[in-house]
Design a protein around this nucleic acid. Structure first.
Lengths: 354, 354
DNA sequence: TTGTAAGCGTTATCAG
DNA sequence: CTGATAACGCTTACAA
């Protein structure tokens, strides 16, 4: 039952446009991708025909022809629950897409699932050439993904500088600066026993924040105190807090710097449950400046970074890389400490001590 | 010219496999997509050749040929901040991808941005045929997206049943059931003035939860009380809570049912800040059963739904639709109320009243 | 059961 | 400048 005679709203092709404009397909292509070799007059005529016919190049055909997918990929690691809590991705993605509006690109989001591990996900993306490049986020210590992605021939940008040899440009923010600001803020408030609830040391940003914490402590002339490692989850943040608050009265911290807001929330609850008043008995700071940090009681002092901008800059950099343009690493604006109610002067007994 | 003729790591094509197996391209294609008409022996030989050469069909070529993209799309509305707070998407996406592991599909995530509105996003996806179908989430009242998507010729599934004529199958969960459970729980605890902090009435799930709230109230023999509409954000949840707590002592609710966890968090903070004890003076319930609901003080009673399963079922349904298989709407398992510390018996003065 | 050849809609090549 | 013609790699009638 085919009625080839009367085409049912078939989409026009480059051939139709060529015929309509009275030129060859090749010329239409040249005119479209404004390349030299087409007289201004002819180009105008071709473009007019294209518009009149409502023609838009077929992406699949173009894709096959030029061997590009016009898509970028972001694969999210396996620990869904930990990631789920992280509002970072939403803003980051919004930033990425803000660059797409003009570029005609698309974002392919892949999440490693029980049935498909991370490596397999990257391989699949590369095998099917689903994307032209990927964003490497949540860098790990000695991250094997940079070698993998390189081997797969994909372009990439890393979010943060990896600690392994990398051929990819990076977009980073100085997390340490934020942690340092938090520590200085607390030290200025008279705190002398400041602890840190860190992210996993296997993750670069978790590790760097912890290192910055130690450095800042030293710089402030304070003695090293407890640093408890977690997996960035709320449960783990709660556990770490219980551990810290369980220390003898003379070792218990008067302030805790959390590596992310979620753990700070959980920590706040643990303290309150134990009858420890925040901020009078204990000051706390978070990281990420989540919307919720403004809506807890007390509201939480936190380090704010610009995830949207991170996404936008990363996308621009990746697109430039793919286009073969020379690129440089980019350093984002410094994170800033947003002081709220969860931090105040150290408890009397403490500040009076020296 | 058997295996390596100094080819620069060029990826093998179907032609190479055909030559290697001593058959035609067509047959290789048939064997690959196991279609009838190929002798078992030949098929085995072809598959062996393919494996030996490490051949995998070129998705772009196939895509152009069969006019399919093997990708599904999810476009997230414009209010990033509101969405950002919602952990729903992460689990939903994980569920969707869990179905992809076997299907060779990919998820294209599009977010409307200031420079590109929602409608334009769908149109762009369709114009470039980036996806074979889309997930329609966060249904609105009289949602024009179903007509749009239909007009664009895309396949789709709706998350929840739309209130407009729809040609698409839906996957839904009975939110009302969850709200009802919350109300019944509170009523059983002696609460008689229960308020509701609702989502926007322009969003179907926000509206339905509010309706279910009213129905449940009536069923419990309670009088209608305040229902305050919000945009689902924490700020708005805080505002609504302040409004409710500002009511005269004889009208102030002793319990508040929030339409999502985020607003419940913000509401909790508002109450605490006002010196109102939760749950002794005020009981509250959330919706979504976020990880954080377990880590507040007090922990929050919430309605849990299975977002992962929602994603998995939706993906399966959409894929089936695209494959032209007959499908039916699916109803997910009932949401369940997870009782925690934020709900307890109504204040003395109240329960003693009747 | 297997081979042949015509698409799919672009872009790239290379004579006029 | 212009315009046939050949890739790109696969699917799919249609023959043999």
């Amino acid at each position: 039952m085919s009625n080839d005679a009367e085409r049912p709203a078939a989409r026009p092709t480059i051939t139709d446009v060529a015929r309509h404009a009275g030129v060859s397909k090749g010329l239409v292509s040249f005119a479209l991708n404004d390349r030299p070799g087409v007289s201004a007059e002819t180009r105008a005529r071709i473009l007019a025909s294209a518009r009149e016919l409502g023609w838009t190049p077929n992406l699949r055909a173009r894709s096959l022809s030029v061997d590009r997918s016009y898509a970028l990929g972001l694969v999210i690691g396996r620990s869904v629950d930990v990631i789920a809590a992280d509002p970072f991705f939403h803003s980051f993605i919004a930033g990425v897409e803000s660059e797409f509006s003009t570029a005609g690109q698309v974002l392919v989001l892949a999440q490693a699932t029980p049935g498909r591990e991370e490596t397999a996900t990257y391989r699949g993306l590369a095998a099917d050439k689903r994307v032209d490049g990927v964003f490497l986020s949540d860098l790990r210590a000695g991250d094997d993904r940079v070698a993998l992605v390189r081997e797969l021939g994909l372009a990439a940008v890393t979010l943060g500088r990896p600690d392994v040899e990398s051929p990819f440009p990076s977009v980073s923010v100085d997390d340490g600066r934020g942690i340092r600001a938090a520590v200085e803020h607390l030290a200025a408030l008279g705190h002398r026993r400041i602890a840190h609830v860190a992210g996993p040391s296997t993750m670069l940003h978790g590790r760097r924040r912890a290192e910055a914490f130690t450095t800042a402590l030293v710089a402030a002339g304070l003695e090293p105190t407890a640093i408890i490692e977690t997996d960035f989850s709320a449960v783990d943040g709660a556990r770490a807090t219980r551990e810290l608050l369980g220390l003898g009265a003379d070792r218990r911290p008067t302030a805790i710097v959390y590596s992310n807001d979620h753990m700070a929330f959980a920590g706040l609850a643990v303290a309150q449950r134990a009858g420890i008043h925040v901020p009078h008995d204990l000051s706390i700071t978070g990281f990420d400046d989540t919307e919720l940090a403004r809506h807890t009681f007390p509201s939480i002092t936190s380090v704010a970074t610009d995830a949207f901008d991170w996404g936008a800059r990363s996308a621009r950099l990746l697109l430039a890389t793919i286009a073969g343009q020379p690129v440089d690493d980019v350093e984002l604006s410094e994170p800033r400490l947003v002081v709220r109610e969860s931090t105040t002067t150290a408890p009397e007994s403490e500040s009076a001590r020296h």
